Amino acid sequence: MKRLTGHPHLDTLVRLAFRNTASLIYLGLVLAVTLFVAADTLFVTHEDASFSGVWLFLLAAPTIFLFFFGGSLAGAEAGGPAWFLVLALVVSVLVQSLAIGWFVRLVRRAGPAESAHPQGV
């Protein structure tokens, strides 16, 4: 297989985050919710604030909360400026996609479970 970036460790990270079915499903779900939130924000009028953006943060949980906690330790109020929230959301989604890919690889390497009933007994 041809290397993607020329660096073996970076190639492994890219493969884990973007080149397996589970990670792609997760990233597709995040994209779909992002498009829904954008459409809801731009084209739908609400009497009160819309909570559609909460779905993005739920998809980015639990890693997004580490950024919120770190931002609050650094003195940011209510999650910090908009650029910080967007960056935290993007990095959280990428970290979780990587974690999903790593978990899939771990399960595949474990192979099939041994039978609970030994042969010949």
Rank of each mutant, 00 (worst) to 15 (best):
D11V: 04
T12D: 14
V14R: 01
V14A: 12
V14C: 09
V14G: 08
R15K: 05
R15N: 10
L16I: 06
L16S: 08
A17F: 06
F18G: 02
R19E: 10
R19I: 01
R19N: 11
N20R: 03
A22L: 08
S23I: 07
S23R: 06
S23M: 04
L24A: 00
L27F: 12
L27D: 00
V30M: 08
V30Q: 01
L31Q: 08
A32P: 00
V33G: 00
V33P: 01
V33K: 00
T34P: 04
L35N: 04
F36L: 14
F36A: 08
F36W: 07
F36Y: 13
F36P: 00
V37S: 01
A38G: 05
A38R: 07
A38C: 03
A38L: 10
D40A: 07
D40Y: 01
L42Q: 06
L42M: 11
V44F: 07
V44N: 01
V44C: 03
V44L: 03
V44S: 04
E47P: 00
E47A: 09
E47C: 00
E47K: 09
D48C: 01
A49H: 13
A49I: 09
S50L: 03
S50Y: 00
F51N: 08
F51D: 14
F51I: 05
G53T: 03
V54A: 07
W55L: 13
F57K: 11
F57E: 14
F57T: 11
F57Y: 15
L58D: 06
L59A: 04
L59G: 03
A60M: 06
A60C: 05
A60T: 02
A61F: 15
A61P: 02
P62F: 02
P62H: 09
I64W: 05
L66I: 15
F68C: 10
F68N: 11
F68L: 11
F69E: 13
G70Y: 10
S72T: 15
